[in-house]
Design a protein around this nucleic acid. Structure first.
Lengths: 151, 151
DNA sequence: TATTGTTATACTCTATAACTATA
DNA sequence: TATAGTTATAGAGTATAACAATA
C-alpha cells in the first residue's frame, strides 16, 4: 500500500480501493489492544443498536455469509463479550446479546476506532468530512436499492 | 452485498467498504465484454500514460506484488494487448509496451468503465461528485505520505 | 419440507521463498 | 552480491454443500 498513483487516481475504483485500504490499516491498528477485528467490532455495534439478534440476521447485516459469522461469534463469546442464548420462540436460532463486559469493550473500541477515523480525515476541512460521509451514505444506500441496481 | 446497514453507516470503514464493493461490481460487469479484469485494465491505463515500463515498476504502481503481476501480464500478452520487449539497457527487465490492439482495447474498456462510474455516481449532484473525488484524492495522497503515516 | 447453526471442503486472491539470468 | 522475472507453495478470507436439530 504505497507509491505514486498518477493517472489511476482519475478513476473512482482505485480511489475507493486505496482509501478503504488505508483506513482499514488505521482501524486494525486502533483495535489492536481490544483483540477485536473490524468484523467482530461491527458485530458488537450492530448488536448494541438492534438488541438480541439471530446469528443469521447478524451476518446479513454485515453483508457476510452466515457460515462466516460462526467464527466471529465464537471469538466474541470466548472474549466474554457476547452470550449465545437460545431464542425461546424459535429454538433453532440464537438470541445473541451483549454482556456487560461486551458493552464495556465496545465503548473502548468505539473510542479507538473513532479516533482513527478522525486522524484519517484530518487532511480535510470539517465541512468536507461531513460532505464525504453524506455522499458515501447516499451512494451505498442507492446501490443496495433494487430500483437502482437494475439500471 | 445487500441489506440495510443502519448504524454501521455511521462508521467510515463500512461506508468505504460497501461503496468500493458496489462500484467494483459495476466495473466488473462493464468490463465483461472486454475480457479484462479491473487489475489488467489498470495495467493498461498505467502503460499508456507512462510509456514502456518494467514489470516490477508496473506492479508497484498498482500497489501489488511483482509476483502477482506475472499472471496479469501473461493474460494481457495472450490477448495481444501488451508486448514483452526486452529492455536493452538492462536485459533482466522487460520494457512492457502497449500494442495498437491494446490501445484500441483500452479505449473501449475506458468507455465502459467511465460509463459505469457515471451510473454509480448518478444519485449525487454534479458538484458533489467532483467534491467526492477531490476528497478521496486528498485522503489517498496524504495516507501514502510518510509525514502523515506516522501520525 | 424449510430453516438455523455447524462443519468440512473448495476456491480465490495474494504474498513468501527459492530459482535463473542478468547486472 | 543484488535485482528482474518466474514458479511453487502457503496463508488468509470466504463461500458452497451437507448434516443435525427444530420448525
Amino acid at each position: 500500500m504505497s507509491g505514486r498513483m498518477g493517472e489511476l487516481l482519475d478513476h473512482l475504483g482505485p480511489l475507493l480501493g486505496r482509501a478503504h485500504e488505508a483506513h482499514r490499516v488505521l482501524t486494525v491498528a486502533a483495535l489492536q489492544g481490544t483483540g477485536l477485528s473490524p468484523k467482530s467490532f461491527g458485530a458488537l455495534v450492530v448488536l448494541e443498536a438492534e438488541g438480541p439478534l439471530s446469528q443469521g440476521r447478524l451476518a446479513a447485516r454485515q453483508g457476510i455469509d452466515r457460515t462466516t459469522m460462526v467464527a466471529v461469534v465464537d471469538e466474541l463469546e470466548r472474549a466474554g463479550a457476547v452470550r449465545r442464548r437460545r431464542d425461546e420462540r424459535d429454538r433453532r436460532a440464537y438470541a445473541l446479546e451483549l454482556t456487560d463486559e461486551g458493552r464495556a469493550l465496545l465503548e473502548r473500541a468505539r473510542g479507538a476506532v473513532e479516533d482513527a477515523e478522525r486522524r484519517f480525515l484530518e487532511p480535510l476541512p470539517a465541512a468536507d468530512r461531513r460532505a464525504l460521509k453524506r455522499a458515501l451514505r447516499t451512494l451505498v444506500e442507492r446501490a443496495g436499492d433494487p430500483q437502482t441496481a437494475r439500471a
